[in-house]
Every structure is written in structure tokens, then in C-alpha cells.
């Protein structure tokens, strides 16, 4: 399994290389603009639905009594909304299919926790 990660700036580089009709600066602004638009939507409580990719929504977390891990003191954690992503069908299937292909010959168990 591949442990590497790609970052926003690497995404920008790859998209710029693939879209030569756009100036590098425009690709940079476009990526940032899309992420900004999505973050704004979630902050306003709107859902985001991207066909073939997935949807983002907010999940409600009720207020609860938690503990300060350092002191052990009980603290009330207020209710809140947290961002949640649900992968869409195409993404789910492509990621799982790639895994199936990679694992096909070896049935060795990955003791991955």
C-alpha cells in the first residue's frame, strides 16, 4: 500500500501541466477558489454534491460531558456540527476495485490496525 500523499500545490502543478491553455496563476486561483467555495458552503450549512465523487454535509454532535485528558476534570463539550464526507458510487467502486486488483494474487493478511 502506498503511503505517500499529494498536496494542494502538487495538485496545482499536475492540473497546470494538463491544462496548458490556462496560466499557472489561474490554475492556482481556480483550485483555491473551488476549495474556498466548498468551505463557504459548509460554513453556511449547505450540502455539496459532486456526482461521481461524493457529497459533503454537516453532522450534528450533541453536547456531552468529556474529560480533560491531562487533568481528568470533567468538561462540558457543547453541541456542534462537524463536516462529513460520503464517497459517491464511482469513487467507492474505483478505489475498491484498484485494491482488489492489487491484492488479487496475494491473499496474505495485512495485519494493519
Amino acid at each position: 500500500m502506498n503511503n505517500s500523499a499529494i498536496t494542494k500545490s502538487e495538485m496545482i502543478d499536475m492540473l497546470a501541466a494538463e491544462q496548458p491553455q490556462l496560466a499557472y496563476r489561474d490554475v492556482e486561483l481556480a483550485v483555491k477558489g473551488m476549495l474556498e467555495c466548498m468551505a463557504d458552503a459548509l460554513a453556511e450549512g449547505k450540502r455539496i454534491e459532486v456526482r461521481g465523487f461524493g457529497s459533503f454535509s454537516l453532522h450534528y454532535r450533541a453536547s456531552r460531558v468529556g474529560r480533560n485528558p491531562k487533568t481528568g476534570d470533567a468538561v462540558v463539550v457543547p453541541e456542534k456540527h462537524v463536516p462529513h464526507f460520503k464517497p459517491g458510487k464511482e469513487l467507492r467502486e474505483r478505489v475498491d476495485m484498484a485494491a482488489a486488483a492489487a491484492f488479487n494474487p496475494a491473499t496474505g493478511s495485512d495485519d494493519d490496525l
Binding site: 505517500s4 499529494i6 469513487l91 474505483r94 478505489v95 484498484a98 485494491a99
Partner: peptide
């Protein structure tokens, strides 16, 4: 999608 398919994470 391509990154995730190849097992890479994507950090935005």
C-alpha cells in the same frame, strides 16, 4: 480520484 485509486492520500 486517481490519487486515491493508487492508494495515495490527498492533503488540501
Amino acid at each position: 480520484r486517481i490519487a486515491l485509486e493508487t492508494g495515495e492520500s490527498v492533503k488540501l
